[in-house]
Design a protein around this nucleic acid. Structure first.
Lengths: 184, 184
DNA sequence: ACCTGAACACCGTTCAAGT
DNA sequence: ACCTGAACACCGTTCAAGT
């Protein structure tokens, strides 16, 4: 989907720099401000130039998500108990998304397709596999928790009244307690 | 926000009919197809006419949500146990949103302000209050479960691989079990 | 009171032309 | 190869004018 810098020719722009500038717009003015025209203006090029780097606006948005949810942010397994590892991994994703609400908005409203999505997902599944759960239990467990994460971030960042600041962690604990009540 | 039909003058359109037609567009072609221009074309009027009925596109979208999540759909308390009542109420909302994914998209991406939002929320809070939970526990519990509901619907309707069809109910059970582990 | 078209300031994307 | 402007088919909203 993403075109990116191709070898063999010097280009006017660097893809990573384009992503930086797009994230700056996202942070400053929100997702609706991220347009090819606005981005190209900030970069000082024609808006058509961006099509040399991204096949479509979708591809640009996917690149923004990939950059933000860098896979290493889901840490490799340690020797801690699986439930603590899972709790920490999700809390970390929560922290990242709360700091960039626009990314949660993208995640929640598009079907992302990049390889990094598969890899991030595998990392999370591994945590439950490590706890002894079978494939179906692990898949259900992760999808349940990920759904909860996204819903929570969307609501929290619009600061709807209700739900104390720490209620995200309360609910996450509930979910993990529930998982434990269904033994591997 | 919504202007609606005002008394004292015959109008060209009926607000409820406008909402019907907008929902038909939403169902047929998705949220991005719901525009004043498309809607007015389907209704056979100028797109500007719609401003006589809705102050803005936001107001139109809020009306679509209000119509779909009719408050009576959150049923008044019965004599069943609170956890079953809550489970059924959320499952019903889940059913409604799965049938109209566009509404979940609106819910998840805007801050809704209508009175009906407050009322629907109170109905859900009453279920937990009836279970003996205090105000803070009830607020956290409902916000946790509602976050989960929205996240789940967003993911399910884009049919991401992963998560068996019934995994929504599995997770909902986890959440309620977790709530029970924190006694009132 | 209610409806309307023109105009404004935006979109994403295709296409043909420039270097 | 890479960049560009013009053009196309859309948006939401303001404004002044019609009845």
């Amino acid at each position: 989907m993403t075109t990116g810098n191709r070898p063999g020719r010097r280009a006017l722009l660097d893809v990573e720099h384009v992503i930086d500038v797009a994230l700056a717009i996202l942070d400053a003015d929100g997702l609706e401000a991220v347009s090819f025209r606005r981005l190209s203006a900030d970069l000082g090029v024609s808006h058509m130039t961006l099509y040399g780097y991204f096949d479509s606006k979708e591809a640009l948005l996917e690149a923004l998500v990939a950059r933000t949810i860098a896979v290493p942010s889901i840490r490799p397994a340690t020797d801690a108990a699986w439930d603590d590892v899972l709790f920490d991994a999700i809390r970390e994703l929560h922290r990242i998304l709360i700091n960039r609400p626009g990314i949660a908005e993208i995640l929640v409203s598009r079907q992302l397709t990049g390889d990094w999505v598969v890899e991030a997902r595998e990392r999370l599944l591994d945590i439950l596999r490590g706890g002894g759960y079978d494939e179906r239990q692990a898949t259900d467990g992760i999808s349940v928790i990920f759904n909860y994460l996204l819903g929570a971030v969307m609501i929290e960042t619009r600061r709807a009244r209700g739900g104390s600041p720490s209620s995200f962690e309360v609910g996450l604990r509930y979910l993990i307690t529930g998982l434990e009540s269904a033994p591997p």
